[in-house]
Amino acid sequence: MNIAIVKYNAGNIQSVLYALERLGINATVTGDADALRSADKVIFPGVGEASSAMQSLQENGLDAVIKDLKQPVLGICVGMQLLCNHSEENDTKCLGIVPVGVKRFPATSNQQGEGFLNSTLTKAGEGILKVPQVGWNTIYDLRSPLFSGIPDSSYIYNVHSYYATDSQYTIARCNYGLPYAAAVQKDNFYGVQFHTEKSADTGDRILHNFLSL
């Protein structure tokens, strides 16, 4: 099977590559349009900031290439967010493949321009929402072959401050302060907010399921 990973300026490509290797798959990391178009499956990873990731795609003409892909595509984390319409992260227009919005979790945080005093106002011991969401959370309402064999409430690993809003395209939910789309699908485009490549056996199974689509 010919698996291509989209090469652009986003992190964690290496981790996805290693995860596939553990499944016995040698993937190609490429930014070449023909190589992406001819792959059996395309994985679109990402860790980083949405606007610079979009800019990198545009500079390399990859935005148009990704939109036209016909084979199964799996966006991971920021890769998933970029499949959506728009992200609140630096007011970024995304690829618009899955027509949902990406918002910031409704909590203050330590990031960019928000001072500590401001961020402590909403805090009071346990039960506060720390942003980014870092850690193991559970997914439910699983409805896609992508989650074949995955029990409801399985734990998956998350690192993110922004989330895709719940919609008709949601194929898995997760709660963090509010219910959001842990995974989305439209046509041949799949996206998971969590990190399959770091989600232990559950993540391995989801990657395996994607490769079996």
Binding site: I128, L129, Q133, W136, Y140, S153, N175, G177
Partner: peptide, 9 residues
């Protein structure tokens, strides 16, 4: 599962 507002990471 119950959709708790505060998640149990």
């Amino acid at each position: 599962p119950v959709a708790n507002t505060i998640s149990a990471l």
